[in-house]
Design a protein around this nucleic acid. Structure first.
Lengths: 137, 137
DNA sequence: CTTCATGCAAAACATTTGCAAAAAG
DNA sequence: CTTTTTGCAAATGTTTTGCATGAAG
């Protein structure tokens, strides 16, 4: 995919097959941990090792192609959607779903802008709606 | 401290010296990881081991005496304040500060109640204001 | 007494590192 | 060619487990 090669190069990274594959995998998975990426790619790219995946995901985060997500199970999760948005987080299975609602993050941002916060420099707002998936899905 | 003994017993747990010490430590630290608790108690309670602290913190979370916090550095953090509130999260040093503002969580809750969310059962709302502490502190 | 909790050492996970070999540009 | 990147194996860091001993109620 030509667009993806460009995207990676524009980030200042070499467009290796590993990076292309890992980004595609993230695109498919949406939110994932390293072992989920390995699992996803183990057939199509069996030589990939954890070290490489950590390196690649890290390089993507550093260049703004991915973001890290917060979890409560001491594992790293990554998000392919880098614009600010809220998440549903299922704490039992440590899975994420996007909450596609432009208003919510803005609502909080606007609220914060009315407050005088001097002890902290807020860069981003992270909202997680914690709970459980309902049965019908 | 008599109140704390009661609190722990009411949670259905035996009020051991370890539990008392660990809870007091959490009260002092506010937000902490296991190694922070060990560090804090290493003089006053040198026989404490990680295994015990993990067990105790886990038992506290299960009985509602503590909550887990979300982090992006694959470590567990705990919070002594169990009511719902927002946090400042310094991603560089992985530290938390309470955002004592009753309105913010309610604002989000109210907003959510106007939405028809059918695929997810939201139990709690977790808001992290991510950024950096300002220099004056 | 009975049950639950602690402490220890080992095991299990998750992530990082160092470095030689390979590939990208 | 030069600079990054990959893949490997080993090291590090974090959390969990099993079990004998000890303490709480």
């Amino acid at each position: 995919m030509l667009l993806l090669r460009e995207k990676i190069k524009e980030a200042g990274l070499k467009a290796t097959p590993q990076r292309l594959a890992i980004y595609e995998s993230m695109r498919k998975l949406g939110h994932a941990s390293v072992d989920m990426v390995i699992e996803d790619l183990k057939n199509s790219f069996p030589t990939l090792t954890v070290a490489t995946i950590y390196n690649v995901l890290e390089s993507f985060v550093n260049t703004g192609l991915l973001t890290r997500r917060f979890s409560s199970n001491n594992k790293m999760y990554f998000d392919v959607n880098v614009y600010e948005h809220a998440h549903f987080y299922d704490q039992e299975e440590n899975s994420y779903m996007d909450f596609h609602d432009q208003e919510l993050v803005r609502l909080v941002m606007d609220y914060l802008s009315t407050k005088q916060i001097e002890k902290f420099d807020v860069k981003t707002v992270d909202i997680q709606l914690v709970g459980k998936k309902t049965d019908n899905q």
